[in-house]
Design a protein around this nucleic acid. Structure first.
Length: 564
RNA sequence: UGGGGGAUCGUCUAAUGGUAGGACAUCAGACUCUGGAUCUGAGUGUCUAGGUUCAAAUCCUAGUCCCCCAGCCA
């Protein structure tokens, strides 16, 4: 999408504009988002949600939320609620248009009878294996089912008895009578109804023992709801002739199906199968684990919904298979958080810094800016004293050339405070640094008057006045750009990032963070963006890393480690 | 091998016969009390081969490569 001019539109909006112009649907635009309640929504669904709801809004139309609950074996109520919550969180509203395919079962049944009466559908006694054999292959035509030419009366009778539950699961199906030699396998007498008796449907219980298949049901759902443009992913392109066929045979209202490429992202898996596996094998801690690409996971990771929406808008929509760099998503997350997240100082990996020439009992209140990007957020006071904590990563005993931070004999500025100069390093018997000693320059305090330039500015907290928090450092779940690229005989877990979660307790945070509530987002200065996790209690605050700040030094460090 | 789709910087995406542009990423510089943010600059692209045309990413021809389809999943 050309984002500067805002003039160019994607191919779907182009089609819709043409349809409006030609009056194809009386100028109406009505879309729908049709999830199957068999898993949690992920960022790929977000693309479809944004597309459907945004288009409806842009063209003055409506967008329905419709659960495509035609397979009781896989669907659960838990997912229905989670999906509704996620869509709301994303910022979309289906108003009073919440529908379920299962609400249309009776109507669909009537349509099926209509089709049987027209001689366009028949009850087939072939077993699943036989159906497969009769279907033929990609290059060979199929064979007609021996039951294909039953009389309308017999079909009507059998179909009614299927509904009544007279036949065992898998014994019979209702099939459309189309063309067993069609080069499009979907048109080789597709199954419309199958018998499922053992599991209850999450909404209709055991009321039904026949269930419509996707191909039969979806167009009917769209038709019943008066959908104008039925947007779906590319793999349904081969199904469009079938979608059209059913509606044409029935002679009912006929929406237009348009296919677009689903979202793929680097370092991410977005198939329900693998996502479910991650949860079931406890590789992650549930669907809302912050490492999951689910909306629930991203919410818990601290992703602002606005950033996800902006991402969806900016990736555009096309028919080309594509893989989006995850960096692009992270870019929009940072962009939003930079403008909105208040800054705090938190030392994740603390080491003591003692200022030798600072009075023992003295405490100063220093002013810090809450968000330099937003003056309206004001300032806060932070406590300064003789003993501080700084991050171990901000000190090196033998620094390389590009390391600007604290080192023996070096001077740096403490953010919003003074210049300090390292005088000494105190180590324990193992040789680990336990304390860094320094002196400070009392004249360097004021932001306004002190023009002394610092090569580096580091963050800190006062040991006397800080709180301990838990920080969960999340990183991408996979180390490989394409997690599904694994050697034969292994599975996608070989590509898991062993360091995707690092829990750090006893991080030192400035005291004003005690007021943080779950969902509150902050920038921990010079570290990254963090969100307060629902696991937090008043005594024990937990923060999840959303995304790190861009870090020049990390790049340099990486470069060095590659060199040596 | 049948059918259906698709191919533009590293990655997405514009240009609808008339200057191949933007974003992310990368690199360089400026600025900065966050090695953040911001600003400036740089490099990198029309799948291939022919043809039509004053002019082709766009039209034509032939090829190449990629994706989807043989569930009673969606």
């Amino acid at each position: 999408m050309d984002d500067k001019s805002g003039r160019s539109v994607d191919f779907i909006r182009e089609i819709i504009e043409e349809d409006i112009k030609s009056g194809r649907f009386g100028g109406r635009v009505h879309t729908r988002f049709p999830p199957e309640p068999n898993g949690y929504l992920h960022i790929g669904h977000a693309k479809a949600i944004c597309l459907n709801f945004d288009i409806a809004k842009e063209f003055g139309g409506k967008c329905n939320l419709r659960f495509d609950d035609t397979n009781p074996a896989k669907e659960e109520e838990e997912y229905v609620e989670a999906i509704k919550q996620d869509i709301k969180w994303l910022g979309y509203d289906w108003e009073d248009r919440l529908y379920f395919a299962s609400d249309y079962f009776e109507k669909m049944y009537e349509y099926a009878i209509d089709l049987i009466k027209k001689g366009k559908a028949y009850v087939c006694d072939l077993s699943p294996e036989e159906i497969r054999q009769y279907r033929g292959t990609l290059t060979e035509p199929g064979k007609d089912s021996p039951y294909r030419n039953r009389s309308v009366e017999e079909n009507l009778d059998l179909f009614e008895r299927m509904r009544k539950g007279e036949f065992p699961e898998g014994s019979r199906t209702l099939r459309a009578k189309i063309d067993m030699s069609s080069p499009n396998l979907n048109l080789r007498d597709p199954v419309m109804y199958r018998i499922i008796k053992r599991v209850p449907h999450h909404r209709t219980g055991f009321k039904w023992c026949i269930y419509p298949t996707y191909d039969w049901a979806h167009g009917l759902e769209d038709s019943i709801e008066g959908i104008t443009h039925s947007l779906c992913s590319l793999e349904y392109e081969n199904h469009r002739p079938l979608y059209d066929w059913f509606l044409d045979q029935l002679g009912i209202y006929h929406p237009r199906q348009i296919e677009f490429a689903r979202l793929n992202m680097t370092y991410t898996v977005l198939s329900k199968r693998y996502l479910l596996e991650l949860v079931k094998r406890k590789i992650v801690n549930g669907w809302d684990d912050p490492r999951m690409p689910t909306l629930a996971g991203m919410r818990r990771a601290g992703y602002p919904p606005q950033a996800i929406r902006e991402f969806c808008r900016r990736i555009g929509v096309a028919k080309t298979d594509s893989v989006i760099d995850i960096e692009l998503l992270e870019h929009f997350v940072r962009e939003h958080l930079n403008k909105t997240a208040q800054r705090r100082m938190v030392v994740v990996n603390p080491v003591k810094l003692v200022i030798e020439n600072y009075p023992e009992e003295k405490v100063e209140e220093l002013e810090a800016i809450n968000n330099p990007e937003n003056p309206n957020d004001g300032t806060r006071k932070i406590s300064f004293s003789k003993v501080l904590y700084i991050d171990r990563d901000d000190f090196m005993e033998n620094p390389p050339e590009k390391f600007y931070r604290l080192a023996p004999g070096r001077e740096v500025r403490l953010r919003y405070a003074y210049f300090v100069k390292c005088t000494k390093v105190v180590k324990d018997e193992k040789g680990d640094i336990v304390e860094i000693r320094c002196t400070y320059d009392p004249s360097s305090r004021s932001i306004k008057t002190d023009k002394k330039r610092a090569k580096a500015i580091i963050h800190w907290v006062s040991a006397k006045n800080c709180i301990d928090i838990e920080v969960r450092l999340y990183d991408r779940l996979f180390i490989k750009k394409d997690p599904l690229d694994f050697p034969e005989g292994t599975d996608f877990t070989v590509n898991l990032n062993p360091n995707s979660l690092k829990i750090v307790k006893n991080c030192k945070a400035e005291s004003c963070l005690v007021d943080a509530k779950p969902g509150d987002r902050f920038q921990f200065e010079r570290v990254g963006y963090f969100v307060c996790d629902p696991d937090s209690t008043a005594e024990h605050l937990v923060f999840n890393k959303t995304v790190s700040l861009k870090d020049e030094w990390q790049k340099i460090k990486k470069f060095f480690t590659f060199q040596t």
